[in-house]
Nucleic acid binder design. Sequence first.
DNA 1: CTAGTTGCAAAGAGTTTGCATGGCG
DNA 2: CGCCATGCAAACTCTTTGCAACTAG
Lengths: 134, 134
Amino acid sequence: MARSKTYSTRQREAILAYLASLGGQHITANQVALYFERAGSPIGLATIYRHLDRFVQSGKVRKHHLDGAPGACYQHIAGEHPHPQIQLKCEACGAVLHLHCSMLEEIPAHVYQAHSFQINPLKTVLYGKCPNCL
Amino acid sequence: MARSKTYSTRQREAILAYLASLGGQHITANQVALYFERAGSPIGLATIYRHLDRFVQSGKVRKHHLDGAPGACYQHIAGEHPHPQIQLKCEACGAVLHLHCSMLEEIPAHVYQAHSFQINPLKTVLYGKCPNCL
DNA sequence: CTAGTTGCAAAGAGTTTGCATGGCG
DNA sequence: CGCCATGCAAACTCTTTGCAACTAG
C-alpha cells in the first residue's frame, strides 16, 4: 500500500485552487512555482511536482506533453465531464478551448465504427489557430 | 544566412532511409541511435539530433511531443500528403495509423465553419486504442 | 584546400529522489 | 508522538553546444 493518511495542507489546497481558477488551461510546474513566488508564498518546485503527480493520480488533473513545449503541462479537470470533450489548443496563444459541438462529440463513435479504433478524448488535443489569433 | 552547402553524407542518408523505412511511425532520437549501434555502425547522439532537426526544417520529418513519453518523437513524412491526414496513435502499442476516412477528413472544415477554429492536421494526433490492442 | 560533418565532452533545461526538518492530527 | 509534508540539493534524463579532428567535393 502506498499512503495510509493524507493531510490536507494549505499548499495542496492552494495549488489545486489555483489550477481550478485557470478553468482548464494548460500550465507548467514552473509557472505554478512562479505564481506562488510572486504571490509572496513561494513553494518548492519539488513540492509542486509531488502535488501535481498526486492530483493526476487522483484524477483531479490531467498531464499532457504538448507539441512545441519542452516540458509537461498540467490541466485541472473542471467539474465533471458527462461526456469528456476533445480539446482544441491554439498554437499561437496557447488557449485551450472546450468546444461543445455535435461534430466533435461524434468523432469517437464514428472512428470506432469505421476502424475499430477507440479514441480516448481525455488525451486528445486538436492543434490549430483560435479565432482570435487568426 | 545559415548554410551555403550541404554535403550528402552516408550518415545523413542512412538516417533518412531508416526513418522512411518505418512508414510514418514515431521514433525517438535514442531509438535511432540504438538501431545504428546494433547495426554495427554507431552514430553519435548529437549527430542524430542535428540531422533530425535539419530534416524537420527541410520538411522531411515531423517532430512531436507525445503524451506519456518524456522526450520528442520524430516521424518521416511519407511521400506527399495531398490532404494531410489527422493521425491516430495507439496508447498501448504506439502504432501510428494514417486512416483515410471521410469523417476524419471533414473534421477541420466542420470545426472551422462552426467555431472559426483552424485545425492543423500536421500537428494533430488522436489518442486511443487500436483494433489489435483492444 | 575549403567548408560542412562528426564525435566527445560539457553545458542546460526539466523532472525525480534522498534526506533532514517541520507541522498536522 | 507518529507520520506526512516540505525544502534543498543531488541525481537523472533528454537535448544542445563548443571544439578539434575528419572528410566530401
